[in-house]
Design a protein around this nucleic acid. Structure first.
Lengths: 134, 134
DNA sequence: CTTGACCTTCCAGCTACGGGAACCCCTAAG
DNA sequence: CTTAGGGGTTCCCGTAGCTGGAAGGTCAAG
């Protein structure tokens, strides 16, 4: 398979696949003409990566997951640990966004949004957060 | 005020403040010795930026907000538009994260997490998403 | 005079790619 | 045979928003 075919089937841009090779996530053979020759196994790896990335795992986490995937003697506990760590990160991110969202929604709610300059959003951004000189 | 003082009072690293000057968000005067000399007005600008960034506004959005902040004849509608746009983005991000979270939590729940290699997380990542050759 | 804490500029690197140039390869059609 | 097109290849730059570090100037205290 050439890179275009795997790109379609794994659902990843060709550029991304080349990048993954660069950073050692996948190691396709080469044809005589220099083209990458992907085996079915490589395709599976890439699909694995695509899905892991879609779940928000970082490249480094993917690297860890792939190495566990490759390891016949892995402990599922190790996989679970990576996933739980990521889950914790996601929860933190969600919490942070929800806090932003709450503040922002309140500010938006208070702004009349007409042609007058008076604006509680700017007032909030301006007023807060300046520490007095000590 | 030197950069260290404003850094403390605005709650931003000195590096960040220099960067903001680089990209034209703030324009402090200079002392004879080349040190940046921040006025109270600059401090307010930086605190404004710090707060806007904390609410997740991008630098470009901050630029827009600052220009409205500077404009005595602004319409609050313009501010509200920026804020609402950002709110929409945040909501999209939250939705995406929650979807990841749901999938991931289910996978974690299904994984026994012991020393055996059998793992539904890896099975899920592996199994899905490979398009058949057409 | 020296020490240490400031300040300055500049350059490199981070994440996870995307865009584009310059070039090679292969097939089909005229 | 040539040409056109649609693959592929490498390489380098750019993104966002900083952060770290090097090499050096400045200033106040001891």
């Amino acid at each position: 398979m050439n890179i275009g075919d795997v790109a379609k089937r794994a659902g990843l841009p060709a550029k991304t696949i080349r990048y993954y090779e660069d950073i050692g996530l996948v190691k396709p053979k080469r044809d005589a003409n220099g083209y990458r020759a992907f085996a079915e196994k490589d395709l599976h790896r890439l699909a694995f990566l695509a899905r892991a990335r879609a779940l928000g795992f970082s490249i480094e986490e993917c690297r860890k997951l792939i190495s566990l995937y490759d390891d016949e003697n892995r402990a599922s506990a190790d996989v679970k640990e990576v996933a739980e760590g990521h889950l914790t990160q996601i929860d933190a991110k969600i919490a942070q966004l929800q806090e932003m969202r709450a503040t922002l929604a309140e500010l938006v709610r208070c702004c009349h949004g007409d042609d007058r300059p008076d604006c509680p959003i700017l007032a909030d951004l301006d007023g807060s957060g300046v520490q007095a000189a000590s």
